[in-house]
Computed example of a mutant assay.
Amino acid sequence: MGRPGPKLAPLNLTASERAELERWVRRRKSAQDLAARARVVLACDQVGEDGRPVPIGAVADEVRVSRDTVTRWRKRFLASRLEGLVDEPRPGRPRTVGDERVEEVVRRTLEEKPAGATHWSTRAMAQRTGLSQSTVSRIWRAFGLQPHRAETFKLSTDPFFVDKVHDVVGLYLNPPEKALVLCVDEKSQIQALDRAQPVLPMMPGVPERATHDYVRAGTTTLFAALNTATGEVIGSLHRRHRTVEFKKFLTRLDKGVPPGLDVHLICDNYITHKNETIRRWLLAHPRFHLHFTPTGSSWLNLVERWFAELTNKQIRRGAHKSVQALEKDIRAWINHWNDDPKPFVWTKTADEILERLASYCQRITDSGH
């Protein structure tokens, strides 16, 4: 048995000190270093079953910092209480902007909106607070604030979300034996666009240039099935994307897959994938099994990642005078891909996905909005 550690002096937090430390931990505008120190002190104030303060090692494991860090801030708090957790003065030019004004900038950025705009700019915040634009910019960088940026998200409302995530991810990580796992979807409304004027080629120091306006020549739809094991793609082009076209694509898959293999298809909840006509076709072809991604969760379907490759490398900067020319280029690109296919490797387990989603939902719930 190891020797017991040194006897630790109790912190004896007062009610006001505990309230202030908990406020530092919760407040979004608190510096992360200060919040971490507050967590250390709160953890050090705990008492074990023997009535003694919790050991340094246990606190370090709980807060996920080193033992030296716990020891340092425990001593600083015992010596100077709350003031000991604040950074000591450093040499250099004295600050010209106090903590109160910094807090005001951060608070307004997080909690308010400027008149006549959806988000703050450095100019608007400078006018509102009386600081310079460069000072506002430095404060935003220090706290990781970027009011000009906004990202999108979508949470699935599918009541069977958890079951479907486990089903689809299970096929990626543990595919069944003597079976193919194919990610299936259609990329609809692919437009054949021709530029209004000729594209100017790239030259040294000058990028390729194209007019912003274009001429529409029609649309086509690509049905694609991505083999998750090999990365190969089976594609079929149609002018429409109805049940009739999807059934034709299934028939093509049936002919292209060796008869001794089961076929597991991962697809979304589009109505053409699960109406009565498709159900009857599946009953006549029992080796085909459909697995649906949760509603609003197309990111679970790996073929969407392949569609992004097609868009970035062929469609977005292409110029096509007709639908036939567009379809010819798409077929050529699929053939080029299949000459050296590269599978997309899924790494996250279903539990990791659900845990991260739960953490994100918790942050939204605690945001106060």
Rank of each mutant, 00 (worst) to 15 (best):
P10S: 11
L11W: 04
L11Q: 03
L13N: 09
T14D: 00
T14Q: 05
A15G: 11
A15S: 10
A15H: 10
A15D: 08
A15V: 13
A15I: 07
S16C: 00
S16Q: 05
R18T: 15
R18S: 13
R18H: 09
A19S: 13
A19W: 01
A19K: 14
E20W: 07
E20Y: 10
E20L: 14
L21K: 11
E22V: 04
E22P: 02
R23M: 08
R23Y: 10
W24F: 05
R26H: 10
R28Y: 04
R28P: 04
K29W: 08
K29D: 14
S30Y: 00
A31S: 11
A31C: 00
Q32K: 15
D33L: 15
D33V: 12
L34M: 09
L34R: 15
A36E: 13
A36Y: 03
R37N: 07
A38C: 04
A38N: 06
L42E: 05
L42C: 07
A43M: 03
A43H: 07
C44R: 11
D45V: 06
D45P: 01
D45K: 08
D45G: 09
Q46L: 11
Q46W: 04
Q46F: 02
Q46M: 11
V47Q: 12
V47I: 12
D50A: 08
G51K: 09
G51S: 09
R52V: 01
P53T: 09
P55C: 05
I56L: 12
I56R: 15
I56M: 11
G57Q: 14
A58K: 10
A58I: 06
V59Q: 06
A60F: 02
A60R: 11
D61G: 12
E62A: 15
V63A: 07
V63N: 08
V63Y: 02
R64C: 06
V65S: 06
S66V: 10
R67I: 03
D68F: 06
D68V: 15
D68C: 11
T69M: 05
T69D: 02
